[in-house]
Amino acid sequence: MVLKIGDARSMYRKFKPHLLMVLIQLGYTFLNFITEASFNEGLNPYVYITYRHAVSGFVMLPFAYFLERRIRPKLTWPLFVELFILSLLGVGFTLNAYFASLRYTSPTVVASMVNVISSLTFIIAIPLGMEKLDLKNPRGMAKVIGTLASLAGVTLMTLYKGKSFRSIWSAPIHMGSSSIHENWLKGSILGVASCITWSMWYVMQAYTLERYPAQLSLTTWMSLIGGAQSAVFTVCVEHKPAAWIIGFNIKLWSILYGGIVCSGLIIFIQLWCTKEKGPVFVTMFNPLSTIMVAILAYFVLGEGLYMGSILGGIIIIIGLYLVLWGKENDEEEVPMRSS
């Protein structure tokens, strides 16, 4: 019995990052819909980003200050500049572009675009030496094929619909029609731009964590600095004071959820997974959000589920498995080299 408990604990430690990344994608899935609903009610996406990270920064601040006061490195000017750039890549520019694209398109389209982040991160990580690529090794080939398969699955879900499977019951939640999906091309361009800078952010996280390993403090700094960057940008583009007024409604709940859960808890967990497994591992789970969005839209919102989404989802899962199988070999080789 003791051995069985020991084996269970060993399995939990081994797959803890995998489980956490699945939960993170579930959190991001709900984020897509709650922000869509708040934007439909008139919430400005730039105001949303500013408030969201202000909430995150002030909620995380006491935890970071007291829990990491002994391990937090001294903040120097070069390190502050690095944190400023990291915040700009992860919040100031990227999230403003991302949620603006959500405003002009739809949750399904945006969730599909985000999946190119894994491929972009993989490409960036190889020349930087953060990811090994041995095409002569079966597991090395698996990483490449898995990455391409995930990208193909996302493309299939985005471009091909096929037969529609309508929900057999009435939708419990109605989002309502939106009048803000006014520029599909503009939204797509903003989405692609955010994916590029998002990939750079994931890679830079790994470098910053080596010099600033206090993950709670790093999360707090990114929220506070990114929120300030977003505030400056918002003041420049949004000249209506009424846009900053938030009532006790879906707008407030969207900001609280985005700030406390997504910009706070999820980013903290994501930093831990990046430190343990690397940026490519973290981004390879992004396609799961696309599948979850499609499933949630079908069962909760009553939207149609298409054959393209089903086939694409299967291909994405296969691709994710291939990449994780290939990366498992990387981790097994580390102790062999050090011995």
Results as ranks from 00 to 15, higher is better:
148 L>G: 05
240 K>D: 15
76 T>I: 06
230 S>P: 06
202 Y>M: 15
57 G>A: 15
129 G>S: 11
190 L>P: 03
220 T>Y: 00
46 Y>Q: 11
49 I>F: 00
190 L>R: 10
328 E>S: 15
58 F>P: 03
231 A>T: 13
37 A>K: 13
278 G>I: 01
126 I>C: 13
95 L>N: 14
279 P>I: 07
54 A>R: 05
78 P>R: 06
263 S>A: 15
131 E>P: 08
325 W>Q: 08
103 R>P: 00
333 E>H: 14
262 C>D: 04
87 S>T: 04
147 T>H: 04
170 S>C: 05
323 V>I: 12
335 P>E: 05
288 L>F: 10
55 V>L: 07
245 I>L: 13
291 I>H: 01
186 K>R: 14
147 T>P: 01
77 W>M: 15
26 L>V: 15
218 L>E: 01
239 H>S: 13
138 P>S: 10
324 L>T: 14
30 F>N: 09
89 L>W: 03
50 T>S: 12
74 K>I: 10
265 L>M: 13
104 Y>E: 12
86 L>I: 02
292 M>I: 11
50 T>A: 13
6 G>C: 12
166 R>M: 11
196 I>G: 06
204 M>A: 14
132 K>G: 08
63 F>Y: 03
243 A>P: 01
227 G>A: 08
171 A>R: 02
217 S>K: 07
16 K>R: 13
178 S>N: 11
205 Q>I: 09
255 I>L: 10
303 E>V: 01
243 A>I: 01
82 E>T: 14
183 N>W: 09
264 G>C: 05
219 T>Y: 01
237 V>C: 06
27 G>L: 01
182 E>A: 15
158 T>E: 00
28 Y>C: 08
74 K>T: 14
259 G>V: 09
10 S>F: 08
236 C>M: 14
114 V>C: 02
215 Q>T: 13
73 P>F: 07
66 F>N: 04
114 V>D: 08
